[in-house]
Amino acid sequence: MGHFATFADFLQMGKHGLYVWLSYGIAFGIFAYNIVSVALAKRQFFNKAKRQARREEIKS
Protein backbone atom coordinates (compact mmCIF):
# COMPACT_ATOMS: atom_id res chain seq x y z
CA MET A 1 0.00 0.00 0.00
CA GLY A 2 1.52 3.29 -1.14
CA HIS A 3 4.80 4.14 0.48
CA PHE A 4 4.74 1.37 3.10
CA ALA A 5 5.23 -2.34 2.40
CA THR A 6 2.96 -3.61 5.19
CA PHE A 7 0.25 -2.21 7.44
CA ALA A 8 2.53 -2.69 10.45
CA ASP A 9 5.16 -0.50 8.74
CA PHE A 10 2.47 2.09 8.16
CA LEU A 11 1.56 2.14 11.86
CA GLN A 12 5.18 2.19 12.93
CA MET A 13 6.28 5.02 10.57
CA GLY A 14 9.94 4.07 10.90
CA LYS A 15 10.82 5.25 14.41
CA HIS A 16 8.35 8.14 14.34
CA GLY A 17 5.01 6.36 14.74
CA LEU A 18 4.25 7.90 18.13
CA TYR A 19 4.95 11.46 16.94
CA VAL A 20 3.03 11.20 13.68
CA TRP A 21 -0.05 9.51 15.15
CA LEU A 22 -0.10 11.80 18.17
CA SER A 23 -0.11 14.86 15.85
CA TYR A 24 -2.91 13.50 13.71
CA GLY A 25 -4.81 12.50 16.83
CA ILE A 26 -4.58 16.03 18.20
CA ALA A 27 -5.67 17.49 14.85
CA PHE A 28 -8.62 15.09 14.73
CA GLY A 29 -9.52 15.89 18.33
CA ILE A 30 -9.57 19.64 17.69
CA PHE A 31 -11.70 19.18 14.57
CA ALA A 32 -14.11 17.02 16.55
CA TYR A 33 -14.20 19.55 19.39
CA ASN A 34 -15.22 22.30 16.96
CA ILE A 35 -17.97 20.20 15.38
CA VAL A 36 -19.38 19.08 18.72
CA SER A 37 -19.21 22.49 20.41
CA VAL A 38 -21.04 24.14 17.50
CA ALA A 39 -23.74 21.45 17.57
CA LEU A 40 -24.13 21.86 21.35
CA ALA A 41 -24.33 25.65 21.10
CA LYS A 42 -27.04 25.35 18.47
CA ARG A 43 -29.09 22.93 20.55
CA GLN A 44 -28.64 25.06 23.64
CA PHE A 45 -29.90 28.14 21.79
CA PHE A 46 -33.05 26.44 20.52
CA ASN A 47 -33.83 24.78 23.86
CA LYS A 48 -33.51 28.08 25.68
CA ALA A 49 -35.50 30.01 23.06
CA LYS A 50 -38.32 27.44 23.12
CA ARG A 51 -38.47 27.47 26.91
CA GLN A 52 -38.71 31.23 26.82
CA ALA A 53 -41.46 31.14 24.20
CA ARG A 54 -43.47 28.69 26.32
CA ARG A 55 -43.08 30.87 29.39
CA GLU A 56 -44.37 33.87 27.48
CA GLU A 57 -47.33 31.85 26.22
CA ILE A 58 -48.31 30.93 29.78
CA LYS A 59 -48.02 34.55 30.87
CA SER A 60 -50.30 35.87 28.12
Binding site: M13, G14, H16, G17, Y19, V20, S23
Partner: peptide, 8 residues
Amino acid sequence: QQGNSFRI
Protein backbone atom coordinates in the same frame (compact mmCIF):
# COMPACT_ATOMS: atom_id res chain seq x y z
CA GLN B 1 16.54 13.76 6.45
CA GLN B 2 13.52 13.70 8.71
CA GLY B 3 12.09 10.34 7.74
CA ASN B 4 8.42 9.81 8.47
CA SER B 5 8.15 12.53 11.12
CA PHE B 6 7.92 14.90 8.17
CA ARG B 7 4.31 13.70 7.65
CA ILE B 8 3.34 15.98 10.53
